[in-house]
Design a protein around this nucleic acid. Structure first.
Lengths: 352, 352
DNA sequence: TTTAGCACTTCATATGTGAGAGTGCTAGGG
DNA sequence: CCCTAGCACTCTCACATATGAAGTGCTAAA
């Protein structure tokens, strides 16, 4: 596995040069250009021999005989794992990131803003997934009537999120009944039950006698809460057009599948879900899928980089960047982590 | 202006045939094809003469000498105004629309769902704009504390929308102060003041003495309310990929400007805003902009059809469909009106 | 007024050619 | 043993050319 050792230092620096050059220029590299642009003290012929061996190792390939070389997906992987250097943020980047600090205090606004900034700074597509409220065990439920058919609902989730919302029902609400239900829900279900299981089991579970009488109300209540949580879990997407400016996606044939994939919320959810499943080695909590490493066929000409954000110390949701395999991994990863870090501090503050 | 009279019946039915054919097939029509496909009892030569005159009138044009003819924007306009027949909904359409009836009762979910359905049914891009809360005069404001730093806020807008939400402040809230403010806001501002002017004038307007003491609180309150309303006014967009399947948008050169335009919320808001400004004759409240009639250069190869939805009898927001100029106007307009009608009834019910 | 016939235009497609870029291989030099 | 100069070869791209198909406009006759 450790291809690292089999590569001479010279080959590594050559590969590094080729990949960095290709990332910025986007065109196949010939031996002559490499010598000129990167100051190797060797003749093109020597470079050719080296490249030939790098191609045998599967790290480069030629689009056609007698074109220059291009990094293969395996080549990018090697680059990301072994060659890539830390990215030094430009003043411009810092400008971008600063804009995130002065956002409002609603979680959806924060994510939307973060994604927008991330996509602009990386000139790629940025996506985010809000915390999974429905799957997270409930710590406590609190309900408080405010008029004859609405109430304030407070949910405490185990990941630290407190969520208050207004729930409006079609039937009248009485304080005593509400208290009864609150009590019932807290004792019967809470601590390890998620909204998801609560919602799906409620219809079948046998209820205590005094609760049974208000079954309709209970059902409406829970499904209203569930629906609200569901609405809060929509994904965020920004910067689609950036991808379409890349030369590799100029033809609809290549761009269309990706755009269609992104149009479906479920795809994006699954994309993040697969990060957790993946056995790829991740560094600093950053997941990185290069080309074929992507589970979805539509994305096999892209790279996807993702990282979780936290509330206090608990992973809550994820943000990611989708771009061409030819993306500036170093920059993207750095910005991704910065933005995730900002989201983490903002949210942790919000819910402390 | 009334080109209508200058066109013989035969020319009209010829134009009608050409446009309908082009809408379905998407390719320039030659005289021979027209005779074959539409059963005109004439020779191609005659058709050619007629077409030649239709071209002189500016209703058709040739992409190049010796290609068939294509409707011009003016031709589509004539078609929409004079030739188009009522659309008969297919069972499939009804299937789509039925799905809208069983949606949740939150206004954002309703619009999102409506737009999704509309885009699928028309195979085009659908967009929607929620009610303009911030511009609408406030009828009444009600505030009710629920704990030491949050309150339930009820806003009654003049367009019939009642909006309840939770507002959370950074400073403690006391019932008496809240009552004072409620009273103040209702008397000083309400009835003809919108959130927008309230928000923007508050910093400069001199306050009464007893209110002055709580200026900070008042400011925070109003800006939080304003921010909430602003968040509620985000636009809805669905079905972008449908446009990219149309042959006229296969090349990025044509597709990119449109995609980029749509990526900006502000563009879509302005698009709807221009409907109100426009002096185009509208039939049954349906606005229709064909090609060059669009204000925005990016959309001059598209057609945009829009219509308002209502709450009770007050226009509240708009929905629209954006597609190629070659769209099936009859179908799109019919579906648009149906969906708008459904939104109207759902919302009117919701706020009655 | 309609139509048949014909010359003409334009596009799309296939084919051919030369220049340019880049390779692999071979043989010679340090 | 590694490096390099030289050269034949391959492939793409841009450009020119030829050909067939589609469709028109015009003219003259029914």
């Amino acid at each position: 596995m450790s291809l690292d050792y089999r590569l001479s230092e010279r080959k590594k620096s050559l590969l590094n040069a080729i990949i960095r050059d290709y990332i910025t220029h986007g065109e196949p590299l010939g031996s002559r250009t490499i010598v000129q642009r990167h100051g190797f003290n060797l003749s093109p012929a020597t470079i050719r021999n080296e490249m030939s061996e790098l191609e045998e190792a599967g790290l480069l390939y030629q689009p056609h005989t007698s074109a220059g070389r291009i990094p293969s997906h395996k080549g990018y992987r090697f680059f990301v794992d072994n060659l890539m250097e830390a990215y030094l943020p430009t003043p411009e980047d810092q400008q971008y990131v600063k804009r995130l600090e002065q956002t409002s205090k609603a979680i959806d606004a924060i994510l939307a803003q973060a994604i927008k900034i991330l996509s602009e700074a990386t000139q790629s597509i940025a996506i985010a997934e809000p915390p999974h409220l429905r799957q997270d065990p409930l710590q406590a439920i609190q309900m408080m009537p405010i008029d004859d058919s609405s109430m304030v609902l407070s949910l405490m989730f185990s990941n630290g999120i407190r969520r208050q919302s207004l729930v409006r029902l079609s039937q009248p609400l009485y304080a005593e009944i509400l208290a009864l239900m609150t009590n019932y829900l807290n004792h019967q279900f809470s601590k390890r039950t998620s909204l998801d299981t609560l919602f799906h089991s409620l219809a079948t579970v046998p209820l205590e006698r005094e609760i049974q009488r208000y079954k309709d109300l209970l059902l409406e209540m829970v499904s209203e809460i569930y629906a609200q949580a569901q609405r809060d879990e929509k994904v965020y997407l920004s910067g689609t057009s950036h991808l379409l400016r890349e030369p590799e996606f100029q033809s609809m044939e290549h761009a269309y599948p990706i755009l269609q994939f992104l149009e479906q919320e479920a795809s994006i959810h699954q994309l993040f879900y697969h990060c957790g499943e993946s056995h790829l080695q991740k560094s600093h909590h950053v997941y990185c899928f290069i080309g074929h490493e992507n589970t979805y066929e539509e994305l096999q000409n892209c790279s996807f980089v993702a990282t979780p954000y936290f509330i206090d110390t608990k992973a809550s949701g994820m943000i990611g960047v989708l771009g061409p395999t030819r993306m500036d991994y170093s920059k993207v990863m750095a910005l991704l982590q910065t933005v995730a870090g900002n989201i983490t501090t903002t949210l942790s503050q919000l819910f402390s």
